[in-house]
């Protein structure tokens, strides 16, 4: 469960995120849809406690990100798009184990979780090889395992399929759906209408740091009488 309350982030004079509020229930995938620079990544970085909000806060499973950032981080997993960000000279297992240790898991718990993820993601063949020469799909699996090794109940996805081929995108999409199946609260940031339509239960359209619409796809279609792309263009265009 995530509850965002009046969250704002200003960089000097720029209001990257401007007083936004929303919530995500367990087992719900909420799409954060917006253009580049709309404030999606800044919002996710604040929820992940990487950035301090200028004002407002968010509760993650009841933990306040201002007062209890360490507890908040124990509840979340995050998967970034673009470069997967792995250590090439470490094996896949070492990469995942490092993040398990950084998330303060005990040794047995970490090993058990890694073994489960190896089976779940089909990494048996390459788990003990250094990741430097892995294909993008293999790296993507390692990055996914790393983000979920500590079994978080809230998952943040920041444009996770950007730059991926069809196969790798499918791996990520299946993973997002499996997280939903495990009743995790999921925020999925993207600027791809198709992906958002395909995966999300609810869509928040964000523009210039403000939420311009929050509802299910059906609600939006009913309200505006158009498909998502047209709704998006209309809302973004209106606020320009």
């Amino acid at each position: 469960m995530v509850e965002v309350r009046g969250l704002s982030k200003h960089f000097k004079e720029v209001k990257a995120v401007d007083n936004i509020s929303f919530y995500i229930s367990p087992g719900e995938i909420v799409g954060l849809l917006g253009e580049n620079g709309a404030g999606k990544t800044t919002t996710l970085r604040m929820i992940a406690t990487m950035l301090k909000p200028t004002s407002g806060t968010a509760l993650v499973n009841g933990y306040d990100l201002i007062k209890e950032p360490h507890k908040v981080r124990s509840q979340i997993g995050i998967l970034f798009g673009g470069e997967v960000g792995l250590y090439d000279r470490l094996t896949a297992r070492e990469n995942i184990r490092y993040f398990a240790d950084l998330n303060e898991m005990d040794s047995k718990e970490a090993e058990k979780s890694i073994e489960n993820l190896i089976k779940l993601l089909g990494m048996e063949e390459f788990i003990d090889r250094r990741v430097g020469k892995f294909s993008r799909g293999m790296k993507q699996k390692v990055a996914i395992a790393r983000s979920i090794v500590h079994n978080p109940s809230v998952m943040l996805f920041d444009e996770p399929t950007i730059g991926l081929d069809v196969t790798s995108s499918k791996i990520v999409q299946d993973f997002i759906l499996s997280c939903k199946g495990e009743n995790k609260s999921i925020i999925f940031s993207s600027h791809s209408m198709q992906e958002v339509e395909k995966l999300c239960d609810r869509i928040i359209i964000i523009h210039k740091g403000k939420i311009v619409e929050d509802g299910t796809l059906d609600e939006m279609k009913t309200k505006y009488g158009q498909d998502l792309e047209e709704v998006f263009l209309r809302l973004v265009g209106e606020s320009r």
Partner: peptide, 14 residues
């Protein structure tokens, strides 16, 4: 440059 810093900052370690 490798993109590993942000994932590190999301972990529980300080």
């Amino acid at each position: 440059e490798r993109g590993t810093l942000e994932p590190l900052l999301t972990t529980q370690t300080s």
